[in-house]
């Protein structure tokens, strides 16, 4: 078995240890004997979504996001087709905002991909904190760090989790992130996946299921991962 991970624009969207998310997916495949290929796409590279199983869209500064957003317009249709075909996407911070219709900043509007019915508005102050969220879908809480000026509103979409500690999407409605088809959008970095192996395996499992019709993930010894996860939960909740 093999999965191909597409890392979109790592030169521009690489702010908060996003490399760790790639590394985590790659290792957790390899440790199970699943081949994992990582393909990096630079801003002008054509993207063949048909050959990708997981797409990672990371975080960048507002300025860099503006550069990316110009390019995204040209791949919007292909990206949408991939999402509607249950393609797996993990979008973090700036990448999460780009999933939606737009991000209104003090310096103008950043047009998004409109892959998910959500939007973001700049607010003040920035929401900076360790964060713990919960979702019945997962056996363990999801922990991370958030640092965002944008307030995201996901409407009737499902959130990734309920905020137990921290701010979440907008600091007011108690929700964090979004789940839509096989998209996971979230403000959590830290990076997200190493301390949340359950989320990482959820992504890998979804990708395998889509590609091979079934996903049997051999269990790994996650004692160190879960210990690090528990440390954050116990310290802040």
């Amino acid at each position: 078995m093999k999965i191909t991970i597409g890392h979109l624009y790592p030169d521009l969207l690489n702010l908060y240890g996003d490399r760790g998310n790639i590394q985590c997916m790659k290792k957790r495949c390899e440790w199970r004997g699943i081949e994992a290929e990582v393909r990096e796409f630079q801003l002008t590279d054509p993207i063949d979504f048909a050959n990708l199983d997981i797409v990672l869209l990371g975080g960048g500064s507002d300025r860099e996001q503006m550069l990316v957003c110009e390019r995204l317009k040209t791949i919007q249709k292909d990206f949408r087709g991939y999402v509607e075909d249950n393609g797996v996407v993990i979008a973090v911070c700036g990448g999460y905002q780009l999933l939606g219709h737009y991000y209104d900043t003090d310096n103008g509007r950043i047009e998004g991909l409109s892959l998910v019915d959500l939007y973001t508005e700049q607010g003040s102050p920035r929401l900076i904190s360790n964060i713990v969220i919960e979702n019945e879908l997962f056996d363990y809480p999801i922990v991370g760090f958030e640092n965002h000026g944008g307030r995201t509103y996901i409407g009737d979409n499902q959130p990734l989790g309920k905020v137990k500690f921290g701010y979440g999407n907008n600091g007011t409605d108690g929700m964090e992130g979004v789940l839509y088809k096989n998209i996971v959008g979230t403000y959590l970095h830290g990076p997200l996946l190493p301390k949340n192996p359950h989320v990482c395996d959820y992504l890998i499992g979804s990708a395998l299921k889509r590609k091979y019709g079934k996903a049997e993930l051999a269990p790994l010894d996650d004692s160190q991962e879960l210990e690090a996860n528990r440390y954050i939960v116990e310290r802040f909740c």
Binding site: N14, Y16, G17, D18, R19, G20, Q23, I128, N130, F145, N147, H189, G190, P191, P194
Partner: peptide
Amino acid sequence: TDISWLWD
């Protein structure tokens, strides 16, 4: 307080 840079 953010130590995500360890991964960079």
